[in-house]
């Protein structure tokens, strides 16, 4: 079978758009963010009166 590059690219873009739409999540706006600096995060939690969730891996 002959592969048509233009059609292949368009198909791929369409597929990516479908996947992105399926993955879209209004709850994730702004995107979920992991902090990596422990003391900065602690200071932020203090200011915002929020608890901290620390994950050690």
């Amino acid at each position: 079978m002959r592969i048509r590059p233009r059609r292949a690219v368009l198909t791929l873009l369409a597929l990516l758009a479908v996947l992105a739409a399926r993955d879209a999540d209004p709850q994730d706006d702004p995107p979920f963010k992991w902090r990596t600096d422990l003391e900065t995060a602690r200071a932020q939690a203090k200011t915002e009166k929020k608890p901290l969730l620390l994950v050690f891996r």
Binding site: F32, W34, R35, T36, L38, L52, L53, V55, F56, R57
Partner: peptide, 21 residues
């Protein structure tokens, strides 16, 4: 980076989340 599952994201929304490696 792999995005955490929605169930987790919703529950963790009110936390300041930190990953320590």
């Amino acid at each position: 980076m792999v995005r955490p599952p929605r169930e987790f994201r919703e529950a963790a929304w009110d936390y300041v989340c930190v990953r320590v490696l």
